[in-house]
Design a protein around this nucleic acid. Structure first.
Lengths: 161, 161
DNA sequence: CTTCTCGCGCAATAAAATTGCGCAAAGCAA
DNA sequence: TTGCTTTGCGCAATTTTATTGCGCGAGAAG
């Protein structure tokens, strides 16, 4: 599953623009389309590339407001966690959800049109599951958002090129 | 720029899988390929669809650890904010960056291979810009992550279908 | 030195995107 | 109501891109 420099270049390009024709990618990484295509296939099979998606403009679909919701709980067991996860899965407003170390137990990112919609979401959430301590922090603006992961850390073989 | 039910269905599909042929999308939303294709084009021109990207598996590219970094500052002016933004832009490890209301002034999500790499990142960051108060929270696990925004809030016209 | 494996690239084939054109329904003005 | 205009649909090319089959050459293995 190791990646070489060419694979990384390919990934870098696809992370920016998955529309780019394989032929053009090949040209940019110094490869003809066939081997380039096969590399992409392999990375998809290996799960390095998970999927290709369309990224929408949050404001244009009326979810311009981001809220970070911190949750603390007394329930520190597997079963409860599963239940919580299940509940969260039902909410498309929750776009990210993490189990945290330290002070907060869970952290989620929620997207909604406005404060009012957040309140509605909040009520629906606490009606589905009992939460001890919930704290909401509103984002005033999104300064940076990218789906592109840094590739500088990826394991590299054949590092002479 | 208003969207109707068909547009939303199209967006919903493309948010999940931007690989799907237009013909198939058309079939699923009850449209032939040409009008479906034109709708997609229009939404791209309008910027509703911002881009199409490949989503990678964080663990497989060796950035399995997510850290949320909260920053408080005394500098509450436009110029400083711009500088900060500029610095952050240079760090591919920072995949999200928000200006917050309330207690914390800025919040960012950082992805790295491990704690050690985070420490390296942290040192590089504070060497680039003077930060008053920085607090790091480590994610023990990513329970949910999606690039798909909820479309339930999108403005809809022609709501009779 | 020979054999085997791996990755490359060319050339054909298949699939998907893109365009041109005509048609019909809905809005609008006379 | 009638006739004009706009809008969105779908069929049928045409063009572009993805995908496959095949042979070649370099380097590893024996």
């Amino acid at each position: 599953m190791a990646l070489d420099k060419i694979d990384r270049k390919i990934l870098s390009l696809l992370q920016r623009d998955a529309t780019m024709p394989v032929a053009e990618i090949g040209r940019k990484v110094g490869l003809s389309t066939t081997p380039c295509w096969r590399r992409i296939q392999k990375m998809e099979e290996d799960g390095v590339i998970q999927r290709r998606v369309a990224v929408l403009d949050p404001a244009k679909v009326n979810v311009g407001v981001t809220v970070f919701v911190s949750v603390k709980t007394n329930e520190h067991n597997e079963a409860w966690m599963r239940k919580f996860s299940g509940v969260i899965d039902e909410f498309p407003e929750v776009v990210e959800f993490y189990r945290m170390s330290g002070d907060v137990d869970y952290l989620m990112r929620v997207v909604v049109p406005d404060i009012g919609a957040y309140d509605t979401f909040y009520k629906r959430l606490i009606s589905k599951i009992n939460l001890t301590d919930v704290s909401s922090a509103f984002a005033m603006g999104q300064i940076k958002y990218t789906t592109a992961l840094p590739l500088d850390f990826a394991i590299v073989v054949d590092d002479d090129k």
